[in-house]
């Protein structure tokens, strides 16, 4: 069932990632093909070691596959140089991590601002954008606090805000609620749903939680580096 090429956000074709282990190849991703359309909200599930995070990192261009073709908004990523890849993902992709990965030495405000710095956006414009974001997430009062002064849920909120500041088309989340309690987790998932529905942001998340996976529009189950099942909800 060929899909309209233009509608594709990204397309992975026959992607493999393996490590040479003596004469044997240890596959993390094994000949995997996957297309994701714009506006989808995909949840990747699977047991530990099934390749979820690696797949997410490949999609986010933080990691390169050993074999295969990778297109992102019609660009052949597998042929791009580091600089071009970097330019591509800093424009279109936002990341959210399980451990938040905020920079400890920067305040909430500065953490959110940092991606803009690398996109050479002017100071005054940055200010406006960050203020907007703070407002939208209701964390204006916390802008001068350091990450260590926030709760886990609040830190992840900042993490999401930072991921969204450069208006990405694709949001990648690696177990975004893994370190949070259930209430905080729910809030983040609600936020994701809203982003997906109202702002049209494509989201790919890796999760262990059946419940969180239900927020998405499609669930992909991985096993041993292959797609075991793909269920559209």
């Amino acid at each position: 069932m060929p899909k309209s090429f233009n509608n594709n956000m990204l397309s992975l074709q026959h992607i493999s990632k393996y490590y040479q282990n003596g004469p044997n190849k240890a596959y993390v991703i094994n000949d995997l093909s996957l297309d994701i359309e714009e506006g989808e909200f995909v949840s990747i599930m699977g047991p530990s070691g099934s390749g979820k995070s690696t797949l997410l990192n490949i999609i986010g261009m933080l990691d390169a596959p050993t074999d295969g073709y990778h297109y992102f908004i019609d660009q052949p990523v597998h042929q791009l140089k580091e600089k071009q890849r970097s330019a591509l993902y800093k424009q279109y992709i936002g990341f959210v991590f399980q451990a938040y990965h905020l920079i400890d030495e920067l305040t909430v405000y500065e953490n959110i601002e940092t991606p803009l710095i690398y996109q050479d956006i002017k100071g005054s414009e940055r200010k406006a954008l960050v203020a907007d974001m703070l407002d939208r997430f209701g964390i204006v009062g916390k802008k001068d606090l350091f990450p260590s002064q926030l709760s886990g849920g609040q830190q992840q909120l900042v993490g999401v805000a930072r991921a969204l500041i450069s208006k990405p088309k694709l949001l990648l989340a690696d177990e975004p609620t893994g370190n949070l309690n259930s209430k905080q987790g729910e809030e983040i998932m609600e936020l994701f749903r809203k982003l997906n529905k109202e702002d049209g942001v494509t989201i790919v998340q890796v999760t262990h939680s059946e419940k969180n996976a239900q927020y998405g529009s499609r669930i992909i189950n991985l096993l041993d580096g292959r797609i075991e099942s793909s269920i559209t909800l």
């Binding site: 986010g60 933080l62 580091e82 600089k83 970097s86 330019a87 993902y89 800093k90 990341f95 990965h101 905020l102 920079i103 400890d104 030495e105 940092t114 991606p115 690398y118 996109q119 930072r162 450069s166």
Partner: peptide
């Protein structure tokens, strides 16, 4: 290293 990694994810080039 965490900071370095994060900055890279956010689009910092090696030069930066």
């Amino acid at each position: 290293s965490k900071e370095v990694g994060m900055r890279k994810v956010m689009g910092a080039l090696r030069n930066h």
